[in-house]
Simulated scan of single mutants.
Amino acid sequence: MSETRETWFDEPLIFTIAERHVRGRFVRLGPVLNRIMAAHSYPPVMEKLLAEALVLTVLLGSTLKDDESQMTLQAQTGGGPVDLLVCDYRAGELRGYLKFDAERLAEVGPDPTLFGLFGEGFLAITFDQAVSGERWQGIVPLEGSSIADAAEHYFEQSEQIPSLVRLCARHDAELGCVAGGLLLQHLPDGEVGRDRIEARADHPEWEHARTIAATLKDEELTDAAASLETLAWRLFHEEEVRVEAGVAVSRGCRCNIDHYARVLAQFPEAERQEMADDDGIIQVDCAFCSRLFPVPLDEIATRH
């Protein structure tokens, strides 16, 4: 394994096993996760769901190559108590929000299934590429026992890349909410433009790597005493593994009065007047950070 400084919290670890045509990412969220959670008082089952979704967002979003591109993960209900789950990632900035019906949540018990939470819902993963201006979106049903299962289905259906996704979260008495995840993928063998005949789920090299990675325990992913490099070494100590630290993650709510003034300036003046109160203020409620932003009408006028 190549040498690197050790990675513990709020920073992905990228690794490659070239001889097995395998790439992967670990991430463990702690302080950043708790800053995001502090905006709302989520019950334990919702805290766990959002934490795992935020880990998945980092695993996927950290694959972006430039600072202006954005990855958005959104899960919507098909009749369950969760109405909306949305997270996004841009240049290391992470945010997330979950909306749910407390009464319906109480009816599904303390350990609900994914179907119990969402019903026949769907998972949408969107990549907005800043350089090319392209938007790419994959939508799959929320099937399986967890968000991780749905993510594997996304890779299978939308990208045809054999993948293993592991996500877990727990509440620690000292650290608060801690969550970790692993994304492992099999790369096609050959040059760009050739048939991807080697990128298949039953390839022996992929089966070998996947079987080893599947032995990883949830408690290892959230163990604050073990660095991410340690986890990679435990799993693949018989392989030549190249590792590098990814971009550090921070709480990234981009909400401020200046931002909302620019957004509101796109609305017709008559609509802005209807939104405003008697003092000429539009109160914008940010669901991500649970704050109200008062935007004066005359502040919006300067954006034209």
Rank of each mutant, 00 (worst) to 15 (best):
A169L: 11
A214R: 15
T126K: 11
H203C: 04
H203A: 14
E205P: 00
A261G: 15
A287L: 14
A173L: 13
S290P: 01
G30E: 12
M1G: 05
D285Y: 15
I17T: 04
A150L: 06
A214P: 03
D83N: 15
G246W: 01
V295P: 07
V32T: 13
E229V: 00
T215L: 09
A148Y: 11
D195N: 06
R90H: 07
N34P: 03
E229L: 01
M46V: 14
D67P: 00
Q273H: 13
G24I: 09
G30S: 13
F9Q: 08
E143R: 06
A102P: 08
V108M: 10
D223I: 07
D258K: 13
A75R: 08
L228S: 12
Q74S: 11
L13R: 01
A151E: 11
L231Q: 05
D172P: 05
Q76G: 11
H304F: 10
D298F: 14
D83L: 13
L56Q: 10
E198G: 12
L85A: 07
Q157M: 09
R242A: 05
R262Q: 15
Q157L: 09
F115L: 07
T113R: 09
V55G: 04
I125K: 06
R242Q: 04
I197L: 14
G61K: 05
P268E: 14
F15Y: 14
R166L: 15
G180T: 08
G119R: 07
H208M: 08
L64R: 01
V243E: 02
D128R: 12
D67W: 00
G193C: 05
T4L: 09
Q157Y: 02
Y97A: 12
P43Y: 10
E269L: 14
T113F: 07
L13E: 02
T57M: 01
E229H: 00
G30V: 02
V45H: 02
D218V: 05
T16R: 12
E299R: 15
F115E: 11
E156I: 01
N34Q: 06
K65R: 13
F236N: 03
V86L: 10
A124Y: 00
C87N: 10
F100M: 10
P43H: 10
T4Y: 03
F127Q: 03
G109C: 05
T215Q: 14
C168Q: 09
V131N: 00
G24R: 06
M71Y: 09
I125S: 06
L85F: 09
R303S: 07
E220N: 11
H186P: 00
L49C: 10
Y154D: 00
D223L: 05
L73E: 04
P44A: 12
I197C: 07
E220Y: 02
N34V: 08
I139D: 02
M37Y: 03
A124F: 01
H259Y: 15
F127N: 06
M275E: 14
R90E: 09
A214K: 13
Q74D: 08
D67T: 04
V243R: 05
G252W: 04
R291S: 12
E220L: 03
C286N: 09
V295F: 10
T72D: 05
K48A: 15
D66C: 01
R135G: 08
E159S: 01
G78V: 10
V295H: 08
D278E: 15
P12S: 09
L56T: 01
A232W: 02
D67N: 02
C87M: 04
A179V: 10
E19S: 14
A214Q: 15
F122Q: 08
E68R: 14
